[in-house]
């Protein structure tokens, strides 16, 4: 069972991700609403995997990735971003993200991406 932290500024996206994840494989141990919150929750919960939105008001996902990478080189981070934000995703990957998923995605897209990400890092 993988312990997940979900970072997204939209509540309805966070809730939907929780619903979409296969409960036999994943448990969402926490959610964060911006980059600051993400780092706090990361330290507190030490999840096995993080999903990261990029465009957030207080502190964005790219900075959150950089902050988390200073604390932990290994925790897999999956960027979830709106299509057409390719340049942001490139920066996020350079900052240390391990994979990305474009919105909108299907249940299958999400589970396939998570699985291949976990396979890669293991």
């Amino acid at each position: 069972m993988y312990r997940l932290l979900i970072v997204d500024d939209a509540e309805y996206v966070r809730d939907m991700l929780i619903d979409m994840l296969d409960p036999a494989k994943y448990v969402v141990v926490g959610t964060a609403v911006d980059g600051f919150d993400a780092v706090r929750k990361y330290e507190e919960l030490k999840p096995d995997l993080i999903t990261m939105d990029l465009v957030m008001k207080e502190r964005d996902g790219i900075n959150a990735i950089r902050d988390i990478r200073e604390l932990d080189q290994d925790v897999p981070i999956l960027v979830i971003s709106a299509l057409g934000r390719g340049e942001l995703v490139d920066i996020a990957m350079e900052a240390g993200a391990d994979g990305y998923l474009w919105k909108p995605f299907t249940v299958k897209n999400l589970s396939d991406t998570l699985e291949s990400l976990l396979m890669e890092v293991e």
Binding site: A10, V13, D19, K103, P104
Partner: peptide, 10 residues
């Protein structure tokens, strides 16, 4: 886009 994503997901 986010709203569509959520509607599609559900």
């Amino acid at each position: 886009n986010n709203m569509n994503l959520v509607a599609m997901g559900h």
